[in-house]
């Protein structure tokens, strides 16, 4: 976290730099069936974030050493396109994208009914075309929509959203400027039907009260986002 607490990001009326209140989300759109050659796909815009996810499979698992006799494995790759950031991103994996791929895989393997497809693989490609802040949340949320679009059985979809703190105020869904000067970030992956969690990270500095507030913002936001996800899968524009 940057932690430049002297930069004023919230005005005297409690409005944020982009006019939102503390608990408000950025604009979200969700569209399915955007990669015609894939088994399932999703395009999600969230503020000026844009992510495309394609799902292939279940299919034969190569290399064989990754195969599991009793269940399917998820092959999750999170990647940022070279033109997705202000300074060009060099193509290829880095430590950050590997970690995000792993925690996304851990979250999704918790909900997909893997035992139905022993010895197979389901490939999930998360491509960030435009990054603002919170791309891991957009990627994970869009991936569960793409899995549903592919008809992969799951106990629930994962909704991922983050809250954080700027100028000692807890706010939901940090944008780029807020993220740069933010004092904390708490991304969560929530199962909207049960309120359980499959993904959790945090960095920064939060008091117990602030932490509880951030947690509650995420829980409330997850229900809203879940409605958009269901609408998009029912064929409407979310």
């Amino acid at each position: 976290m940057g932690g430049y607490g002297d930069v004023q990001m919230i005005d005297e009326n409690g409005k944020r730099v982009d006019g939102r209140g503390p608990g408000d989300l950025r604009d979200i759109t969700i569209e399915t069936d955007v990669v015609p050659v894939a088994d399932g796909s999703c395009r999600m815009t969230w503020g000026t974030n844009e992510v495309i996810v394609a799902v292939y499979g279940p299919m034969e698992c190569h290399p064989r050493k990754l195969q599991r006799q009793d269940r399917a494995v998820l092959d999750v790759a999170y990647n940022m396109a070279p033109f997705s950031t202000t300074d060009r991103m060099r193509p290829g994996f880095n430590r950050r994208s590997r970690e995000i791929s792993k925690v996304t895989k851990d979250a999704l393997e918790s909900v997909v009914l893997l035992e139905l497809y022993p010895r197979s693989k389901i490939r999930i490609s998360i491509e960030v075309l435009s990054a603002e802040a919170g791309t891991r949340c957009v990627g994970l949320t869009a991936a569960s929509v793409a899995l549903a679009d592919a008809g992969v059985p799951m106990t629930d979809m994962v909704v991922s959203v983050a809250s954080g703190k700027i100028n000692d105020v807890v706010v939901c869904d940090l944008n780029k400027e807020e993220d740069n000067y933010g004092e904390a970030d708490l991304p969560m992956g929530i199962l909207p039907n049960s309120g359980q969690l499959v993904f959790l990270q945090m960095d920064g500095d939060l008091s117990q009260e602030e932490f509880n507030q951030a947690w509650q913002y995420n829980m409330d936001a997850a229900q809203m986002i879940h409605n958009f996800m269901v609408d998009s899968l029912k064929g409407g524009e979310a």
Partner: peptide, 25 residues
């Protein structure tokens, strides 16, 4: 079409879809 690129385009030909993005250094 890409907010972070200095120039960009999306082309669709049938079910083939590609993006191009221009960055400067």
């Amino acid at each position: 079409v890409l907010p972070r690129a200095e120039g960009s385009a999306r082309v669709r030909m049938g079910d083939t879809i590609v993006f191009a993005g221009v960055k400067f250094q």
